[in-house]
Design a protein around this nucleic acid. Structure first.
Lengths: 329, 329
DNA sequence: TTGAAAGCGGTACCAT
DNA sequence: ATGGTACCGCTTTCAA
């Protein structure tokens, strides 16, 4: 069943059927009615490939993230997909893992599918050495980055001010009397660097000399973080608070502390389910995906319809206080 | 840049270029080399819409799930997407939420996009009243269901035997001496029903009369489950073990118990990251997504290439023991 | 081994 | 308001 069949059965030309299909005003109500009747009767759906061929778009946006099984990315993908669908776009999902080569490859895969735009989730897509893959993608379609910062033509960023959040966390902890604050992180993506800078700056402002022992890089897992913190404790490295770049790491630290019946303030990042799930529940920085994602999609859609949009939108983070902040002494 | 340009620049016809593009053996090595040179030089990528129009496929599979921000679905989507991509298929993601109407609508959206197949994740897509939307989808493309059971033409299921898992959990708890086992669940999807049947059957086999008070339906959230269990405890309803249809609920129960310094065995389902994150860590049933998803994709791809595949594949579950099983008394 | 040409199913411009 | 038709870019059959 194609547009020719509908034309034949309704007694009009394919041009008129096409007009009805696309809601053109230049069709008499009677004609429209007759044609719609046939369309419904035959349960006809236009062929998107043919339409795509003509219009050179299938209204699809490619979503690239390293790993949807990560709760943080999952949440972002969920939000983004919903927003896109509301705007009549489909989401082509692509999870790359961490290798740069696969990122490049899959970026090409998406472009080959002629997506209307690419949405990068997370700063993991920004390599400080080389962003040429993003640059070349942006030559074909707009690239929108959620929580990453890449300044290139046709590339737009919507991100959360995690640097300031980190700074304020440390200030808060210092204000509470903490002086030796352990910082756990996993990777030095853009987001990772920004947080560490916030950490350092706050210490400097509080006239605390950063202790290299207290800036600890650990594997991105509860067990990895737990083991690292346990080792620290065994080595009698002292600290009176913990901040972690990721809830997962914070939970690991928490487990190590709980095992020794130690209680110090702990702050995580991402405000994921596990922050609520762990005991004591974890104070965490919410990086406002609920705001970032709709904003990113909204801007992208406006861009695609010809509007000008800002190259960069920054949103403040929000600390969600739970049990691990104010410790009963 | 299209196939005509490549033909012109290489001095051959579009037919030959097409053959090279599709790896046809009927092209002389010399010709192939020349054409490939031009293709590479011009950085040419075939137009997928035109190809789709001719072949009536763009090698895309629609993935339908209620919510990717749920860690369980996120993991499934992650696995499925990876497997599909390895087989050269793209994943069109579609999250429906819980309303049946939206499920139907989005199923139509996917079909309108001319996906090669639809992959339903989770039993939430099976309505006991009416599966006509699945039936009509299956008339157009094969439908593969992961962890759901719908027996219809052109519909295939790969699922985990959670009923037996529930049965064995209860038997295990009974064996440990428990007699009043609280069961928490949220929704009665296929998966939900199967678990509850396993629960009941085990009680029957152990000659325990099921107490309606101990089969508790709660909201799908940590807070919801916690509140419900707290209420139960306030009402002095006694129980000596807990099983929950979802880790989230188990964690809620755990929190309620911990707050009262009570410790009884707790078993969850899904073996998600929060099972590891909570303290004490949660014993949970792994429903083998790592097996189900690759199997489902593999079968689907074979089906699409003309092979016959089984209508139903069942995989045993696996209990992952953590702190909440054997309680130090 | 290679080429010519007929689809695939739409959209949109130009007439009428 | 409606119809005729060129065009989008590829695959594939048929001939040579």
């Amino acid at each position: 069943m194609n547009i020719y069949d509908i034309a034949k059965r309704s007694g009009f030309s394919i041009a008129t059927v096409s007009r009805v299909l696309n809601g053109s005003p230049n069709v008499s109500p009677k004609t429209r009615g007759k044609i719609l009747d046939v369309i419904r009767r035959e349960d006809y759906t236009p062929n998107v490939f043919a339409r795509g061929l003509g219009l050179n778009t299938m209204r699809m946006v490619g979503i690239l993230c390293t790993d949807v099984s990560d709760t943080y990315y999952a949440k972002a993908v969920s939000l983004v997909e919903n927003c896109l669908r509301q705007k009549g776009f489909d989401a082509l999902l692509c999870c790359t893992g961490s290798g740069v080569d696969r990122k490049k490859k899959y970026l090409d895969v998406l472009l080959a599918k002629r997506v209307d735009a690419v949405l990068l989730i997370g700063s993991a897509f920004q390599e400080d050495t080389d962003n040429s893959h993003i640059a070349s993608a942006a030559q074909q379609v707009p690239v929108m980055i959620i929580n990453g910062l890449v300044e290139l033509p046709n590339t737009y960023c919507v991100l959360c001010d995690e640097g300031t959040a980190a700074y304020e966390n440390i200030s808060l902890l210092c204000d509470m009397g903490c002086r030796r604050i352990l910082y756990l992180y996993d990777v030095l993506t853009y987001s990772g660097c920004v947080k560490i800078e916030g950490y350092k700056k706050a210490l400097t402002d509080w006239k605390i000399t950063p202790d290299p022992l207290l800036m600890l890089r650990v594997p991105k897992s509860i067990e990895g973080a737990k083991a690292a913190v346990e080792k620290l404790l065994s080595n009698a490295v002292e600290f009176d608070a913990v901040m972690a770049s990721e809830d997962l790491l914070a939970v690991g630290a928490l487990k190590a502390l709980t095992a020794r019946e130690m209680r110090v303030p702990v702050i995580g990042f991402n405000n994921s389910v596990i922050a609520e799930a762990c005991t004591p529940s974890l104070t965490s920085v919410d990086n406002r995906l609920e705001t970032l994602c709709p904003t990113a999609v909204d801007l992208l859609v406006r861009l695609l319809s010809g509007e000008e949009i800002p190259k960069k939108v920054m949103v403040p983070a929000q600390l969600v206080e739970r049990d691990t902040l104010h410790i009963a002494t």
